[in-house]
Amino acid sequence: MFGLMRNFYRWVKKKNEKSITLCLLGLDNAGKTTTLHRIKGEVPENITPTWGFMSEEMNHGKHKLTLFDLGGGKNIRGIWQNYYAEVHGVIFVVDSAAADRLGDACTSLHKALTSPNLDGKPVLILANKQDLPQALKADEIAKQLKLHEIPNLSYRILGCSALKTEGNLHMTVFQGTQWLVSTISSKYDQLSERVARESAEQKERERIEQEEKKKRVEAAREERRRKQEAEEAAAAAA
């Protein structure tokens, strides 16, 4: 009897546990990696620019959270789209003190959120670096990012400081993450079905790409070998 009860509780617990994958997007220097450290409960230090990918796992309440941190520099941004299929939601980080880069941030955000594998997924926008005196407030950032022009947008925008704890400006990072996780949790079945389907499609595309690449490399090797043989034959004849 007790065994049965225990199994039941275990089943309920398992059923409530959800694996949620998020990605951090935003221009270089926006504060994505700093935000990642903050969400993990670490003090952000020794952070260098990201020119690639890093993934971190953590427990968030009863959920297992996986966060993808990607490089935001102009020449690495192209990789973002390859991760969209796998994520349930997005954290988009903006440097609120870099007014001259908001146009660029707006373009990147719109491009990301209208792509087929992200369209309609929940987005937390962090108007970061609120500790800096020249930082624009979250509602001004919302305006400049033209959020109302994005179709199917389920979002929240919050001002925060991922770096500084003065005035509790870092706390909104946690509140925002909480909002994002519970939003995803509330439509988890539908979202995770989509993630599973689209990730499988993405994997298949990558597999085909890889096969084609292998063929090209073999052909190139063969071509080099033939050339070398021809040269050797010509040298021997001379």
């Binding site: 990201t50 690639g52 990918f53 890093m54 690495i76 192209g78 990789i79 991760y83 990558e206 890889q210």
Partner: peptide, 23 residues
């Protein structure tokens, strides 16, 4: 080739389960 071209050519984006960085 630029780091960007190499990233694409090597399909670095399909790497999972470990951090990667191009320099």
């Amino acid at each position: 080739a630029t780091a960007e071209e190499i990233t694409t050519s090597l399909s670095l984006h399909s790497i999972r389960g470990r951090p990667w960085q191009i320099q």
